[in-house]
Design a binder for these strands. Structure first.
Lengths: 189, 189
DNA sequence: CCCACTATCTATAAGCC
DNA sequence: TGGCTTATAGATAGTGG
C-alpha cells in the first residue's frame, strides 16, 4: 500500500567525510545554520559569550559571535589577570557597553571622514529565522585594524599557554580555563 | 497505575535568560556539550575547520577546535588581507548619515555618562522590523537589556544605509558582501 | 558537576519543487 | 540554490543519584 513512499524522511548517516560535493555543500549549509542557531540559543538562555570561527570546505569563512568575535577573544586575553573569580555572571551587557561605545565612535568617525569610500571593509550579514537572530560575517575581508587586533590576541594566547585540566569529549577538546585562561589546542582531536 | 511518573520527558522552554542559577548551570553544560558535538560532526562530515570560544555564565572559559582553536584563528589572521573588491557599488547615503550620526552620538554619550551608574538610560530607541527601521523618539528607557535590540537595529540601519541592494530571503536579511563599513558582529552587544 | 533515564522537542537527511 | 515537506535521528528538559 504505502510502500511506494520512496524513502522520505531523515535517515541515519555515517559520521565520515561526505564525498559527494553537492551533498557536502548542502549538509554544510544546513548544519552551519543549525550550529549557529544552537549557539544563539546558548547565548539567549545562559547569557554566555561565544565566538565561532568556521571555514567551509570551499574555503569560505564564517563566524558567529555574541557579543562579537573580537569581544570574546578580547575577553580571553584580558582574563589573563585573575581579578575577579566569578563576579559577572549575567551582566555581560553591562560589561560590553564600553566596547559598544568604542565601536560606535569608530563608526561615526569613519562615516564622518568618509573613509569607507573605496575601501573594502567587512560587511556582516544579519540572519533571522523565526525570531532568532545572529550575525554571519565573512572574516575574509577583515580590515587591518581587526587583523592587528586578532594577531595580538593570538600572540598573547600563544604565550599564555597555561592550562589546568583538560577533558576529551567526543573527539572534542574541552578546556576549562579557571583564571589563567590558557589556550587549548593542539590535539584538536 | 503508572501515573506516578512525575512529569518526565522533555518540555519546551522559553528562549529567555534562565533565572535559576542551578538550572542555568546545568543547561549550560548540556548545551555546551551539544554544541561541541555538533561542531565536531560538522568537522567530520565536511572537513570544516572550526573554533569555538565560550564563556560560561560563571566566567569559566571553554574552547573547541579542529584542528585547533589556535590554528583556525591563525588562518583568519593570515588570510585576512583584503582582496580586490570586485564590486563597489556607489552608495548614496550622504543625506542619511548626518542624522544617524547625530543620533548615535547622542546614544553613545548617554551610555558613557549613565551606563556605569547601572541605572536606566535615556535614549531614542531604534526599532527594526522586517527591514523597516524607525526611531521611537519619545525618550524611552533604554536599559541594558535593550542593547540587544539596539544591536539588531544597528544592523538593519547599516544595511539600509550602505547596501543599495538588499534581498529578503525567508525572513532573513541578506546583505551582499565585499563592502560596507567596518564593524561586524553587531558591534558588541 | 557528571551520569542515567525517558518523554518530547528539535534538527535534519531525503526528496520534490 | 533555495525553500518546503516528511519522517526520523538526535538533542535535551525534567527528575533522581
Amino acid at each position: 500500500m504505502a510502500e511506494n513512499r520512496s524513502s522520505k524522511g531523515r535517515k541515519k548517516i555515517e559520521m565520515k567525510k561526505i564525498r559527494n560535493e553537492e551533498y557536502l555543500q548542502v549538509t554544510f549549509s544546513k548544519r552551519r545554520a543549525g550550529l549557529f542557531k544552537k549557539a544563539n540559543e546558548l547565548y539567549s538562555l545562559c547569557g554566555a559569550e561565544i565566538a565561532i570561527l568556521l571555514s567551509s570546505p570551499a574555503g569560505t569563512v564564517f563566524s558567529f559571535g555574541h557579543p562579537s568575535v573580537e569581544t570574546v577573544i578580547d575577553r580571553f586575553v584580558n582574563r589573563g589577570t585573575p581579578q575577579e573569580p566569578s563576579v559577572l555572571p549575567s551582566i555581560n551587557h553591562e560589561a560590553n557597553v564600553p566596547e559598544l561605545t568604542r565601536r560606535y565612535t569608530d563608526i561615526v568617525t569613519q562615516l564622518e571622514d568618509g573613509e569607507m569610500k573605496g575601501k573594502e571593509l567587512k560587511a556582516p550579514v544579519l540572519n533571522a529565522n523565526n525570531g532568532d537572530l545572529w550575525w554571519e560575517d565573512p572574516l575574509d575581508t577583515l580590515d587591518l585594524e581587526d587583523l592587528q587586533h586578532l594577531k595580538f590576541a593570538v600572540g598573547y594566547m600563544k604565550e599564555s599557554l597555561l592550562m589546568n585540566t583538560r577533558t576529551t569529549v567526543n573527539n572534542a577538546v574541552i578546556a576549562p580555563h579557571g583564571f589563567g585562561f590558557g589556550f587549548h589546542n593542539g590535539l584538536g582531536s
